[in-house]
Design a protein around this nucleic acid. Structure first.
Length: 875
DNA sequence: TGTCTGGAATGATAA
DNA sequence: AATTATCATTCCAGA
């Protein structure tokens, strides 16, 4: 059983539990940490420094994060928390931790690249902000920065100061120092060249841009081949990159305005502002720099885009600021301004503030990679109307391709139920991943603010780390309901992002995203309840959207072993010759069984397929068996894996599984009550999921697990359930065991709905122990996650699981084990990767998602994350 | 004239 | 190593 995935999750849970138990302690740390999730971003944030002590503090947050992502891991490499003092950290990061980690983690090849790439600016450039789209999204850029995802602290650091480096390589002293060193070192040698090298001309630009801009550049570093070519891409990238401006991007000009706007609006209520200010100050260094850029470590990204930013007013760059903000904002209303996200600006952000706002601790808002519940207490954030499963994202080089639409023709709708206060709240929206791993900001896509006469919903862009966040007012007069007609999706060049230092995901075939909504509710008690809901997956590539079959819904989730029942599949791109294949994989990814189901072609249509459930290979089932099926239009045109469960003849199994995943892809993860569009009969699974999701903890719990986990959970849910804030309910999740990726195929794992962890901050700075967890995603695609493809060198999952599990189960976890695990994992890789390091593999998920790719070897970042988390807990 | 899109051409990558 | 299948991005062009 120990499915990798599961195990990992379980461990997490376990840890988590532990964590909770210890809350008291944690709390303290947390407090210190309070830092907003961002803090990382913040670097500057004072608190942070304090926190230093605590790794814990971070941890607390981090933990969460960690759990979430890998990023966190980075932190640890040294063991030192990255967060801590920003600057310091930065250095560290740059130097060691991240770099090392990353590098180490990375497959050799990549590393190399990375190294090279990293070297400089590139890294930053790419990804970050600047990279982002130059023009476009300002915000993005702004946002860029960093951290987005991960919350990686490191990034932040980088960002701030560092980033800049790139910008002006020489310039920023510090940054340079820090950054360079690291990067340099790494790259140093490498060709990468740095930015400069990159083809493009102007150094500066190049620097920045270079990376980003041109694919080429990035490429350079990057991964793949590109590098060489530099020539390759010559294009505009630079151009673009350099400036945000480019007209194309919608946002483009944002900045300009931004500043003003930004500020104005922003004014935060939160104390943060102070922090922010401080940060800014810091950032200023950098920030100003932005222009100048001194980047820090290069690591990552630098966001700094700022650099890039240059162009802009700079605001964005600030990202850091934002960072701070990020969280903070929660409450406020958005102003409308547009873009600007400017970093600094951030601070100001919304003019409004709530009365309470201050209470917030903005800073404390949970990082974007944290898993939050969709409901807590009386509150429930739900997607009333899901977005269409396909939305062609636009590149910076293109004009906007409009707002994400709903299937019925309108736009997605989200509503907060249970909120009776008269104060408006701010709904945050960012583009998250849709793979089987934990939900986190998507590195290759950014939200794009849409404005115009056709847009009725005001919005404001802000950056959290490197992630653009659209802030939309949730007004009581509208029943806390918002029509999301102001959100488009911007695609960042893979080459720009992949080069980033901390980036572990690969862009190729990583074209599915989810719209992630968050709301932070300040309660009279002083606590802040943070809720999050993610939409169904959205395929963003033109090609995939046109060619890949997609299953939105399935009428049956389970069937008795003999099969024979008819299942109606709703989806897209079904063809007359579409095949439906059922398969069962062992934990190690090996195919245990595979058979083609009969398709009633006469009754099938472009959007529907009627298939006859094939008999299971073993008619004597004593317990439900999770299998998968996918629709295939050809060799490489397969849908994601959908889940299906064969049950013993009489047993009603339905619920057990988490359908989410499967269906999930399409289905909503969480629907509110209303959501469940489908009658349960059909989507029961979904329903179930949604249920689960609703409760954070539940979700969490669910998330964690994989099948195994589920079982465990079922068995001993209590721990998990205990999540602090929410009442944990255990649902059965039955995540299917599944296979991870098998080489043979690709599985796509469905994603899981979002996992949530509810986070409550009692005090402004702190969070209660959130329940967190690991992500639901896991839940959703039990298989996938852990599963990183086993073939790969490591299948972290298994190992982890095994180890972890024990731990989890036993109340006392052993750190050692953990460590071992990690070690093992490394070993497995073959490449000696350091534990913490995140590796960019190919898209892990993707792999899973796309069978084609083959396997991915790398460790999954999450595994690492888990480990880190685990360690922290233990410690 | 500019934006929004659907369709593709083109070069980069993966098989 | 060569060839072909896929992808990712950039371009075009009509609405």
């Amino acid at each position: 059983l120990p499915i990798t995935a599961e195990s990992a999750p379980s461990s997490f849970l376990f840890k988590y539990l532990l964590y909770l138990q210890h809350k008291p302690d944690l709390s303290l740390p947390l407090d210190a940490p309070c830092l907003p999730s961002h803090f990382h971003g913040l670097q500057s944030s004072p608190s942070i420094s304090v926190s230093v002590t605590e790794a814990n503090s971070y941890d607390s947050q981090d933990e969460l994060r960690v759990a979430d992502f890998y990023s966190s891991p980075s932190v640890r490499p040294n063991g030192a928390p990255t967060l801590e003092s920003p600057r310091i950290e930065i250095t560290a990061y740059g130097q060691f931790p991240e770099d090392e980690e990353e590098e180490s983690s990375l497959p050799v090849a990549k590393r190399v690249n990375s190294i090279v790439t990293l070297t400089l600016p590139n890294a930053d450039s790419y990804r970050d902000p600047s990279c982002l789209s130059p023009a476009s999204s300002v915000s993005s850029r702004s946002g860029l920065s960093d951290a987005s995802y991960e919350s990686s602290f490191s990034y932040n650091y980088d960002n701030s100061p560092q980033n800049s480096p790139w910008q002006s390589p020489s310039v920023s002293p510090k940054g340079s120092t820090l950054t360079l060193p690291t990067d340099v070192c790494a790259s140093g040698g490498s060709p990468r060249q740095s930015p400069f090298t990159s083809p493009r001309t102007s150094i500066t630009d190049d620097t920045w841009m270079g990376p980003r801009g041109s694919r080429p550049n990035s490429p350079c570093g990057a991964k793949r081949k590109y590098s060489l070519n530099g020539s390759g891409a010559p294009q505009k990238p630079f151009t673009y990159s350099p400036n945000p401006s480019p007209g194309p991007s919608p946002q483009t000009s944002p900045r300009l305005s931004v500043t003003e706007e930004t500020w104005l609006p922003n004014t935060n209520q939160y104390t943060n502002s102070a922090i922010l200010a401080a940060i800014n100050a810091l950032s200023t260094d950098g920030g100003a720099e932005l222009g100048e850029g001194v980047p820090m470590k290069a690591r990552k990204t630098s966001m700094d885009s700022g650099v890039i930013l240059k162009v802009e007013p700079g605001g964005e760059d600030l990202i850091p600021a934002e960072l701070g903000q990020d969280e903070a904002p929660a409450n406020r209303l958005p102003l409308k301004k547009e873009s600007y996200s400017g970093g600094f600006l951030d601070v100001p952000q919304h003019p409004f503030s709530w009365a309470k706002p201050k209470q917030y601790i903005s800073p404390s808002l949970p990082a974007l990679d944290w898993q939050l519940p969709s409901s807590s207490g009386p509150y429930s954030l739900q997607m009333e109307v899901q977005p269409k499963s396909h939305h062609r994202a636009h590149y910076e080089t293109e004009g906007s391709r409009g707002a994400v639409k709903a299937l019925a023709g309108g736009h997605p709708v989200i509503q907060l139920h249970g909120y009776m206060e008269s104060e408006p709240l701010t709904l945050q929206l960012f583009i998250g991943t849709a793979d089987d791993r934990l939900l986190r900001p998507h590195a290759f896509y950014q939200v794009h603010r849409i404005t115009g006469k056709t847009v009725s919903t005001p919005s404001h862009e802000a950056l959290h780390n490197n992630t653009k966040v659209l802030e939309i007012p949730l007004l009581p007069e509208n029943n806390m309901r918002a029509i999301i007609d102001c959100a488009g999706i911007l695609k960042l060049r893979n080459s720009d992002i992949e080069l980033r230092k901390g980036e572990t995901d690969i862009g190729r075939k990583n074209t599915r995203v989810r719209m992630v909504f968050r709301v932070h509710i300040n309660q009279s008690t002083g606590r802040t309840v943070s809720l999050q809901v993610a939409s169904n997956p959205i395929e963003c590539s033109q090609r995939s959207a046109q060619e890949l079959p997609l299953v939105d819904k399935q009428s049956l989730e389970t069937c008795a072993g003999p099969g024979g029942e008819r299942m109606l599949l709703d989806g897209h791109n079904f063809q007359h010759d579409s095949k439906v294949v059922f398969l069962e994989k062992a934990q190690d990814g090996h195919h245990l069984w595979e058979t083609e189901a009969k398709v009633e072609r006469d009754a099938s249509k472009p959007n529907t397929l009627i298939v006859e459930i094939p008999p299971y290979r073993n008619q004597r089932l004593s317990s439900p068996v999770q299998v998968n099926f996918y629709v295939c239009n050809g060799k490489r045109k397969r849908s994601q894996y959908q889940r299906f469960t064969y049950v013993p003849a009489s047993a009603p199994t339905i619920k057990t599984e988490p359908r989410d995943d499967f269906d999930a892809p399409l289905l909503c993860t969480q629907h509110g009550p209303g959501l469940s569009l489908h009658p349960k009969p059909f989507y029961s699974s979904q329903v179930v999921n949604s249920m689960m999701t609703s409760d954070l903890r539940q979700c969490v719990v669910g998330g964690l697990y994989s099948a195994t986990a589920q079982q465990r959970l079922a068995a001993s849910p209590s721990p998990l359930s205990s999540s602090p804030s929410t009442s944990p309910k255990l649902h059965d999740l039955s995540p299917p065991p599944f296979s991870k990726c098998v080489p043979s195929s690709h599985q796509l794992v469905p994603q899981s709905p979002v996992s949530h962890v509810s986070i409550i901050q009692e005090t402004p700075g702190r969070y209660q122990a959130p329940s967190f967890y690991p992500p639901s995603s896991s839940s959703s695609s039990p298989t996938s996650q852990p599963s990183t493809p086993t073939d790969a060198p490591f299948s972290p999952g298994p190992h982890l699981m095994s180890q972890t599990q024990p731990v989890s189960e036993s109340s006392s976890p052993n750190p050692h084990k953990v460590s071992e695990t990690s070690c093992s994992s490394q070993r497995e890789d073959g490449s000696p990767t350091p534990l913490a390091v995140s590796i960019k593999q190919e898209p892990q998920e993707l792999d899973q998602m796309y069978l084609d790719d083959g396997e991915r070897r790398s460790f999954s970042s999450y595994s690492i994350e888990w480990l880190n988390f685990y360690h922290r807990v233990i410690q």
